[in-house]
């Protein structure tokens, strides 16, 4: 474990806590893409298949459980909770995320560490995580004004993978057998997708104005 990875995990956890806060405090999920939340729930379920077979550390197991439970709870809440689901922007959240699912799975069948069930699902979760934010970014551009908590949620979600890239650079130089090309390249793509969001987020923070993404 290194500081970059720990900081990345904490930012990831913070993004989920901010989202939970927004939904439970405002009893609203306006501006949140259900499709992105469904994709994230799938990412964790596909990646943590080894949750009960490979014990790495207490921290690792607890964080995996937190991510699986929180992501499924958010999807459940946006679909089933009578109050919350009323504020879901169904007509704006129209990104065809099934294409992202199919493309990620097809790529995982072609490019993976080993052609085994667990490795293919791990690669699938890595590719899917890289593109899972797209429905959310499209929804933000369509809904124009972004409320603070939603903006902070997307910001922390983007920052976490940027810290993971620093972690991979650090591990590459400090560990002999370290090579994670699949995660690294996918992580770069994932962070790059946030580039324009980070730019407009920085501008709104600098000018102390409401965050607006150009349509």
């Amino acid at each position: 474990m290194n500081i970059f990875r720990f900081a990345g995990d904490m930012m990831h956890l913070t993004s989920i806590l901010v989202l939970l806060l927004k939904i439970y405090a405002t009893k609203s999920c306006s501006g949140i893409s259900l499709k992105t939340q469904e994709l994230y729930a799938l990412v964790f379920l596909a990646r943590y298949l080894d949750l009960f077979t490979d014990f790495i550390s207490v921290y690792n197991t607890i964080m995996k459980l937190v991510f699986i439970v929180s992501s499924t709870a958010i999807v459940w809440c946006m679909k089933r909770d009578r109050v919350v689901r009323r504020s879901y922007d169904k007509q704006l959240d129209t990104f065809r995320h099934y294409f992202l699912l199919a493309a990620s799975f097809a790529l995982a069948l072609l490019v993976n560490e080993k052609f085994t069930f667990q490795e293919i699902f791990w690669a699938f979760s890595i590719y899917l995580e890289a593109v899972a934010i797209l429905p959310q970014l499209v929804l933000l551009q369509r809904s124009g004004n972004v409320d603070n908590l939603t903006g902070q949620y997307v910001f922390f979600l983007g920052a976490y993978r940027a810290f993971y890239i620093l972690n991979w650079i650090y591990r590459y130089f400090t560990e002999t057998h370290f090579s994670r090309w699949i995660a690294c390249i996918s992580g770069l793509v994932q962070t790059a997708l946030y580039a324009d969001f980070f730019y407009y987020y920085y501008i709104s923070w600098k000018n102390n104005t409401k965050l607006k993404l150009p349509a």
Binding site: S57, N60, E113, H177
Partner: peptide
Amino acid sequence: GLSSSLKDEL
């Protein structure tokens, strides 16, 4: 082994 070190991350 190599693959175990790869999967110690979240």
